[in-house]
Amino acid sequence: MLDDFLMFSFAPMLIGLFIAITCAILGNFLLLRKQALVSDSISHVVLPGIVLAFVVTGSAATWPMMIGAGVAALLSVAFIEVIVRFGRIEPSAAMGVVFTSMFALGVLLLELSDTRNVHLDVQHALYGSLESLIWLDAVGWRSLLDPVALAGLPHELWRVLAVFALVTGAIIVFWRHFVLISFDETFAASAGVHVGLVSIFLISLSAIAAVAAFDAVGSIIVIAMFVCPPATARLLTNRLKTQVALSVLFASLSVIVGILASGYVLRPFGYTDSVSAAGMIAVISGILLAASAVFGKHRLAVN
């Protein structure tokens, strides 16, 4: 039982936790800046980015793909800005134009290029493969202290850990900047904060988080973790720091409950197979939101 957990659930849970917490922390600021759908947009444009990186470099190595996806995310933000500013198109419509077009381009490139030998398809991009991230070297708790066994942990873990460290570090260092541009852009600008630069920084961090997460868990979890835990937390408190802390808590809860539920939900029906863990995590986060939307102490604005 314990060995089973360490071998099959430990790594997915850890990876899921790092991803969910990273996305949720950033999601608080996107939510407050009324840019919740930026995560939707980013997670769609990641596909053409990695496909293009694959077509150009001919390999499915991690770094080219992450760079490709990051570039695609920033490009999409630039396109949206141009369409809104020059074309005077509704921002949400402009966003819809850009991310659907780029996603379509990604699908087309994927179908036209020869990707049979690599792990790259649309389904994978959508739901990821959290279940496949197993730790074969695990034999009991002692493995957690055994460097040889630890080396056998899926390499995705180290990647999401690095991104988690980067994002939490950046949030701590630039906390005041993010708060200022989220609350009062005009005051921020007059006080010498480069609003454009800081908001691009926030979006870049989101893109990095989405790209790192996407390979392991797929884009649905990414969107769900960016939006649901912060939204849930917002309905329970009127303090920013509490909101961020609660969002981390809800993100973690979604991952743990989601992974456990995915393994056991079909047991009563006589099946021992797991359902999609990524999907289950997102569903749990949605259930948490639904609960706080109905019962949350601060679900309504005061005025």
Partner: peptide
């Protein structure tokens, strides 16, 4: 019925319902 804006509401619903479909 909540203080959430339409962007957040859309994001929440699309990810959760889609995830349910994936499950």
């Amino acid at each position: 019925n909540t203080r959430l804006g339409s962007d957040a509401a859309i994001g929440v619903v699309l990810s959760t319902f889609f995830a349910l479909g994936v499950v």
